[in-house]
Design a protein around this nucleic acid. Structure first.
Ligand SMILES: [Mn+2]
Ligand SMILES: [Mn+2]
Ligand SMILES: [Zn+2]
Ligand SMILES: [Zn+2]
Lengths: 127, 127
DNA sequence: ATCTTATTGCAATTTAGTTGCATTTATATA
DNA sequence: TATATAAATGCAACTAAATTGCAATAAGAT
């Protein structure tokens, strides 16, 4: 189940992530590859790469889905220690922040995953 | 600027939040009031109530915007200590979690706000 | 080389959210 | 209370992200 084939589309999309250490929104990828593949293919390739733990995703404050390199739970053990994502208000770029955020357990709730979005200015935009 | 009038629409929407301590998505509100007001009005009333710090909003993992009672920075002082939101995978309900999440400062980034989404099962769905 | 089925392209569709403009209505003030 | 004025609303058209169904293509196993 969920065998991933190394198609031309898969290779192209992976190359975009190798060139760029930041997170990339689906819309950016659709535009970037609008001559190379259909937008539906972009959605489906990203979906497969996420299932295969090659990429992980998060949703920005704008509601747009973004992807970045690596599986979601790199440091397995504690599921709750997921890393936050930074989103620059000025230039729109986003990136993974390699720290752990600890969530205390909350009575009456079972927490399986968490998403943390940090919003502000990146180094480039701090003029 | 941004005077808020107590219109019928405003009262109706506020009543929905008084009946329900959970967060409510815009889509739910549009459906709930589809006989009482236009969807555009729902968007605009919510926008005003948020600006007036009567409601605050966050975006779920599904990309849908949700609103809940109260202003964003109830406990002003530290902007970075914003409360997380819980989202139940099973029943879809979401709610404010009244705890503070502390974000350590990160070199090269200026963080102004943060969003924390906790995903799992709520008490009702833990059968 | 052939077969199987995962993957892709394409067009149509769904859905959330936005915009412009004419009309209505809350509320200040005379 | 009557009037003025600007806020708020309804409506229809629109934008943009994401999804779906299906026929055609291509990766990779045999
Ligand atoms: Mn990440
Ligand atoms: Mn809240
Ligand atoms: Zn920036
Ligand atoms: Zn639940």
């Amino acid at each position: 189940m969920s065998i991933i084939r190394k198609t031309k589309s898969v290779r192209l999309i992976l190359s975009a992530f190798n060139d760029n250490k930041d997170a990339i929104s689906i819309v950016e990828l659709i535009n970037k590859f609008n001559k190379k593949m259909n937008k539906t293919t972009v959605y489906r390739v990203l979906e497969r790469l996420e299932k295969s733990s090659i990429l992980h995703s998060f949703v920005g404050k704008d509601g747009l889905k973004r992807y970045a390199k690596g599986g979601k739970n790199s440091n397995s053990k504690k599921i709750l220690n997921s890393h936050p994502h930074f989103l620059c208000e000025d230039c729109g770029t986003s990136s993974c922040i390699p720290i752990d955020i600890i969530i205390p357990s909350i009575p009456n709730y079972t927490i399986k995953t968490s998403e943390h979005l940090l919003i502000g200015q990146c180094k480039n935009c701090l003029s």
